[in-house]
């Protein structure tokens, strides 16, 4: 479903991705971990066609993203199948919580208001924000904004959801709730890519874990990877080698 083949990317001459390759199969929950600045968010933005790989190929649901990045019809078609939870939330600051979540339904899918209402309320319930639907983003904590972003990504019911640090800034109970949500979606056939620093979250949701560092995947495996003693894992976890 998602395939990175030897992808290179650099910003202002500074290389970020240097031969990144990995696969995510349908229905899988793929967890991407790695040090800060290693290019995890950048990787997600390649999947949705915001960036074009300088070299290599990114194929998502059979679409070669790089080749179609200037083809609006193909790109829109692909993006409608993907929900992306931004690391910083990226909410529209003059719309309240309800309207932020309703935004893709109103402006992109152009659904009827009553359909929108039931979907938005459903999504807000899932992230435990039903009582805050009237609040503006400026009145929310960082963790709440994150949950609104999550609701906004899942309200369109996409078959593929990309989570950028879904549990950063959340208390342990809320993190556990979000992790349960991710697992729940996974079990209903949604393919997930989860970028996270949160080892607990990774253990809860992952069907596969990969460590991104120095521009490529250093090691990948199942949950037991985190208990192993691969140097990249130890380095990431901050244990002396």
């Amino acid at each position: 479903m998602i395939e990175f083949k030897d992808v290179f990317q650099s910003f202002g001459g500074r290389p970020v991705l240097r031969g990144l390759s990995f696969n995510v199969k349908d229905g899988e929950c793929f967890v991407l971990m790695g040090p800060s600045g290693s290019g995890k968010s950048t990787t997600l933005l390649h999947i949705v066609g915001v960036y074009k790989a300088r070299r290599g190929e990114v194929v998502v649901q059979g679409v070669d993203v790089g080749k179609n990045i200037d083809n609006p019809d193909v790109l829109v078609g692909l993006r409608r199948k993907i929900g992306l939870v931004f690391q910083g939330g990226a909410l529209v600051n003059w719309l309240n919580v309800y309207d932020n979540v309703a935004l893709p339904l109103r402006e992109a899918l152009e659904l009827e208001e009553n359909e929108i209402e039931s979907r938005v309320n459903d999504a807000l319930e899932k992230v435990l924000l039903s009582n805050d639907s009237e609040k503006l983003p400026s009145e929310l904590s960082g963790g709440m904004r994150k949950r609104v972003a999550l609701a906004r990504a899942l309200v369109t019911r996409p078959p593929l959801i990309l989570y950028d640090e879904p549990t950063a800034g959340l208390d342990p109970a809320m993190s556990a709730q979000i992790a349960r949500l991710i697992v729940d979606f996974s079990q209903h056939g949604v393919t997930s890519v989860v970028v996270t620093h949160d080892v607990d979250c990774a253990r809860r949701v992952a069907s596969r874990i990969a460590i991104l560092s120095k521009g490529k995947i250093q090691v990948e495996g199942d949950k037991s990877l985190l208990d192993g003693n691969h140097p990249s894992v130890l380095e990431f976890l901050g244990h002396p080698a």
Binding site: R80, L84, F86, G88, L91, V92, R152
Partner: peptide, 21 residues
């Protein structure tokens, strides 16, 4: 401010037409 905080990219990814919106 929207541009530098990923909000415009977020609109693009949601396929919300930023010119219209």
């Amino acid at each position: 401010t929207m541009s530098v905080s990923d909000e415009l990219i977020a609109l693009d990814v949601m396929t919300v037409d930023r010119t219209r919106f």
